[in-house]
């Protein structure tokens, strides 16, 4: 337990980690709490058209009189959801492939490696464009599913490399000698020994999913229902918010995405410093 407490103490002293977490948590709180406090839906026409930010409508309104702040809060929700689901699925696939390839080696490794490399060189967004355009994507869950299915390869590669270096360690040999089976060894011996690494990989996948989803939404291939930050940018661009000078329409959604992803990256740097004491000296 002192180890955990020690790690926590170091973590709380890391400015990057604390600042990044603060921003992420504030935005997460906004996404979770604010929609419940707003009486109308994000796409309802509630206010005056094209009004700049005011006390009533904090982020102003769209050309159609929708509340930009309401859209922002709901959109953040979609952003976190797609990051969690897409990043989570990619992490699960990446771990499954990476652990198996790295631990089993041999032919299994060859085949998994081949698949990983193929998915790796396929440009994910362009594949998603085709899939979404044909199959149509109605909700965030389906979008996240497709994102997860295309964005795991680099994680699999990284996890495979880590597994390879752990495979020949004494404690793994010991587990093998004591008759533990492969899944057990992976779950109980290998994964815990790289848990910090896995967590940081998940954070990067989380951020990556958000950025891909935003691009898809912006192109107009996002979920056909609901609202997202990318869709807000799409609408703002489509209805000439730029030329009408309605900056309050396109600044918040982009700033929201940048803030979430950027602070996640900063959290990752902080975590890296906490887990690898050497970096703390720099």
């Amino acid at each position: 337990m002192t180890g955990v407490r020690n790690a926590l103490r170091v973590a709380l002293r890391n400015g990057k980690l604390v600042a990044g977490l603060a921003v992420v948590l504030a935005l997460l709180l906004t996404a979770l709490v604010v929609p419940a406090t707003i009486a109308y839906g994000p796409n309802e026409y509630v206010g005056p058209a094209a009004a700049p930010p005011s006390a009533e409508y904090w982020f102003g309104t769209t050309t159609f009189g929708q509340d930009v702040f309401a859209q922002f809060a709901y959109g953040l929700r979609a952003t976190f959801l797609v990051g969690l689901l897409g990043g989570g699925l990619a992490a699960v696939i990446g771990m499954a492939v990476g652990f198996t390839a790295g631990y089993r080696g041999g032919l299994v490794d060859e085949i998994l490696n081949m698949i990983t490399n193929i998915v790796l060189v396929l440009p994910a967004l362009v594949v998603l464009l085709i899939v979404n355009a044909y199959l149509g994507v109605r909700d965030v869950g389906v979008q996240a599913l497709f994102i997860g299915l295309t964005s795991w390869p680099w994680a699999a590669r990284a996890i495979r490399a880590q597994t390879l270096s752990l495979r020949s360690r004494d404690f793994v040999d010991l587990a093998r000698l004591s008759g533990m089976r492969t899944p057990g060894i992976i779950v109980r011996e290998i994964a815990p020994n790289m848990s910090s690494y896995l967590f940081m990989t998940f954070i990067l996948l989380f951020g990556g999913s958000i950025l891909i989803a935003a691009s898809l939404d912006f192109i107009g291939l996002g979920p056909s229902q609901g609202v997202s930050l990318g869709l807000m940018l799409n609408n703002a661009a489509r209805w000439s918010a730029l030329h009408l000078g309605m900056w309050w329409w396109f600044v918040p959604p982009g700033a929201g995405i940048t803030a979430v992803v950027g602070s996640l990256y900063v959290v990752n740097v902080g975590l890296d410093e906490v887990f690898n004491p050497k970096l703390r000296e720099m």
């Binding site: 950025l211 396109f250 982009g254 940048t258 803030a259 950027g262 990256y265 900063v266 740097v269």
Partner: peptide, 14 residues
């Protein structure tokens, strides 16, 4: 980090 976290289209719009 802020720049890499920026969606391309948003920086373009800005």
């Amino acid at each position: 980090y802020l720049l890499t976290a920026t969606p391309y289209m948003w920086l373009a719009i800005l």
